[in-house]
Design a protein around this nucleic acid. Structure first.
Lengths: 145, 145
DNA sequence: CAGTATCCTTAGAGATACTG
DNA sequence: CAGTATCTCTAAGGATACTG
């Protein structure tokens, strides 16, 4: 009933690629490295609802430096996920938009985001348990105290 | 209808969190940082099809160091995504399994993986276009240096 | 406004050697 | 086998100052 079984079967198709360091042959790693960085998904989420300018994006995510904002945006543009539109006003305005390719990422991303949102309390609980509770089977097999 | 519009609406609910550096308030960033690292998703994919031991995982993804394999596995265990089972044989055997929480990640991940697989040629094309580089590097292996 | 350029500090991660 | 313990190096990324 859960499509999880489905997912498992599909994963098995990729397993051989996983060990392939030269990411040319591993689409999974190639793309995950791309959008799995610190800011890319955030930017895509921001641009999902509407096109925004550089400074708007910066205000939306204040803890990114201008350097990284520029770089992230540039990389996303390079990969065809967003487009960049310069308005030759004075001072110049630059608007970033989600390209069709970027829009096609929205659904898969939403699935992940929803998961994160629904499960993060469980994750925190597990974390607290792991950190706080005395481990029943320690990782380093220590001798009986 | 595409669920993309749906995704957009859902994203807007998270937008205010996005600027929240203290990831305590931003489930999205919290969890993305967790599974967005270099190896976590790979490990989850490996464990999706069957439980595996340390060395099996290492063989499946040879370019991870033992240090990082241990650390990745430990972090996933800490977050409740996988479980660790020690068999006190000699020499010891340790089996890693996907916990229910980890299994719940399979579907969202599958969506992302499928996207990566289906779109990576488009991405490469966009990249080549952006770089102005000669696009196609054939499948042939490089000649030994 | 929308970036560059530069410097500088950490965290990420490999290599290697050792252990229960 | 399944890890630890170091040691090291690199590159990700922040801070700051400058520009068209």
């Amino acid at each position: 009933m859960s499509t999880a079984q489905n997912a498992i079967e599909r994963f098995s198709r990729y397993q051989r690629q996983l060990g392939d360091a030269g990411s040319a042959h591993c689409a999974v790693r190639d793309v995950l490295d791309r959008i799995g960085d610190k800011w890319s998904m955030l930017m895509i989420m921001e641009l999902a609802t509407q096109s925004q300018r550089f400074s708007e994006l910066h205000r939306a995510v204040p803890d990114i430096s201008k350097r990284m904002l520029t770089q992230t945006l540039r990389d996303l543009e390079r990969d065809g996920l967003i487009t960049r539109h310069v308005f030759p006003t004075r001072p110049p305005g630059v608007e970033y938009r989600l390209a069709p390719l970027g829009q096609s990422l929205l659904d898969p991303m939403a699935a992940l985001i929803e998961w994160a949102d629904r499960r993060h309390s469980e994750i925190h609980a597990a974390r607290a348990r792991f950190d706080g509770a005395p481990p029943d089977i320690p990782h380093e097999m220590l001798s009986p105290a």
